[in-house]
Design a protein around this nucleic acid. Sequence first.
DNA 1: GACTGATTTGTGAACGCTAACAAGAGGGCG
DNA 2: CGCCCTCTTGTTAGCGTTCACAAATCAGTC
Lengths: 339, 339
Amino acid sequence: MAQPSSRPRRLPRLEDVAGLAGVSHQTVSRVVNNHPNVSRETRHKVEAAIAELGYRRNTAARSLVTRRSQTIGVLGSELSQYGPANTLLGVERAARDAGYFVSVAALREVTRDTILDAVRHFLDQAVDGIVVIVPHMATVAALAELPIRVPVVAVGSDGNDAVGGVRVDQRKGAELAVRHLIAQGHTRIGHVAGPQDWIDAVARAEGWRSALEAAGLEADLLVEGDWSAGSGYDIGRRLAAARRATALFVGNDQMALGILRALNEAGLNVPTDISLVGFDDQPESAYFSPPLTVVRQDFEELGRRCMDMMLAVLGGEEGPRTLVVEPELVLRSSTSPPA
Amino acid sequence: MAQPSSRPRRLPRLEDVAGLAGVSHQTVSRVVNNHPNVSRETRHKVEAAIAELGYRRNTAARSLVTRRSQTIGVLGSELSQYGPANTLLGVERAARDAGYFVSVAALREVTRDTILDAVRHFLDQAVDGIVVIVPHMATVAALAELPIRVPVVAVGSDGNDAVGGVRVDQRKGAELAVRHLIAQGHTRIGHVAGPQDWIDAVARAEGWRSALEAAGLEADLLVEGDWSAGSGYDIGRRLAAARRATALFVGNDQMALGILRALNEAGLNVPTDISLVGFDDQPESAYFSPPLTVVRQDFEELGRRCMDMMLAVLGGEEGPRTLVVEPELVLRSSTSPPA
DNA sequence: GACTGATTTGTGAACGCTAACAAGAGGGCG
DNA sequence: CGCCCTCTTGTTAGCGTTCACAAATCAGTC
């Protein structure tokens, strides 16, 4: 329990444990690595010595010889936003549970160069795999460009033979939202999209379009924002003046908040005058005025799945290279039949 | 430029570069580490060889001998929230700029055990330092408990000789908010606090109290939430019914959102019936209905400062062990003189 | 009781790097 | 010319693991 009075100047190593247990360093190594061929008795002796000395194996020495670092690199952008942040958390949890370290590189700006730079950073660290949470179109292209020697799993992308993909079915989510509005009797349904260099933004716009077309409705009211509440506000003001739609499918919750604010200022009521559906379901959305009907995606689950796929690849499994998570429609009070 | 047709099976090492440049491996090492005593000519030869082979130094081998891993561990909780997430980003940026890797461990639950577990995780990785973004009271105590051999900087804590501290002056932020309300003529100013096992929550409550007392006003209306919009909503409903205060200083923006929703439902107007000040200033707060007056804290700057302090300590500097960042009051339309 | 095969343990050599020291080259000066 | 000093380069020995192999032990069998 108590610390030994004089602290040794170096951390104990295999050799020290071996000496105390009266075995060779190799035997200790076998115990530490759970090799089968160690007698019960020896194992106990060694474990006792390990406990007594507080031995922990040296990661650097280990990776030097195994050429594996037990580290997963997570390359992310917009990591302060609800979605990416929770995906990161999911990855971290699954990784640490599996005995991996998680190294993070955040991109402030997403360009070919910043991506390559971050990947180099990870390769310098000799990560065993890279999880990419950079939902831009540019990402996949940039990744394909450089000969990475380690497995890569990219969130939001479709998998291919070089890069695994785990994503939420954005298109389906969009269809859920739009079909709900159609079912309520809306016929003029607009879409406030995210920037079209984002994979998800494109997929959501496609889902919006396909759902409308399937119902024989016109898909002609699309405006592009930048995901921020501010851009939602600006768009909301314009839409309030035009009043062409009775319902809006909005690319994310933040823009929906800005739109809500603009409509409110313009004296329009949600949902009576205009219905609104958001996307993501951050915890706050349930407390907007009015509470926002949304398409929910489970980001943490997404992150966990990424890591599952990564572990499978690292384990040499041949499994699927792409994995799709289902979104879910959550009804609240920002939608109602048109007046 | 082009890849050599047959890719070597191993990555090049010092020896390979040395062979190509016609020098010893040690000279190459000197070039790589920017040692001064290398002739200009040799340096050029070596650099050319490095470039030709695409040599990158092996981190594991390097840390094995230097006993330094060039890695900073970031221990965080609530990392999906705006504040902690941005602090992490600040740390990451500063760390990567300084040539460090950033390893993350996220706590799902903050207890003595989970903290110790994560610290052990980092020590196994032989991190050079640990940045702690776990704004709970329990943190400092838990950290003090175990003999960590590396520098620790904790966000939100006051520094002591064992642990460096970088924090925003929460108390001052609270005072700014409350003084603003007092200046507008409010005399019944309540506080919706965060959980009192959070360092910041306590400091904000203290600031609220001290500002009121300094003005000779009663500090008797304090309710405790859990930071979430949901708890803000519940509290808001109760306060709307009681109507004891004409202004509320709210512990964070999310709770303010919930309160806004509750007051709205109750038919009360903000700011006419009740003024509201939030804390943090997440980007959305400017688009609440009405836009929220807040105390802003610069989380990314906070993270950068953490890393600055860490680098100073790692560099052997004796500098200050505690660092305070100033908050700022941002006026929007959720505050006005009482009716 | 020697032979076979499996199980358990030990030995030596990497892994790729840096630190410490040694050696060689060159310059200034008496 | 010889001495000392500085600058540059090379040599050797670890750092703490794991891997490949060798050796020792233990049964079981004829």
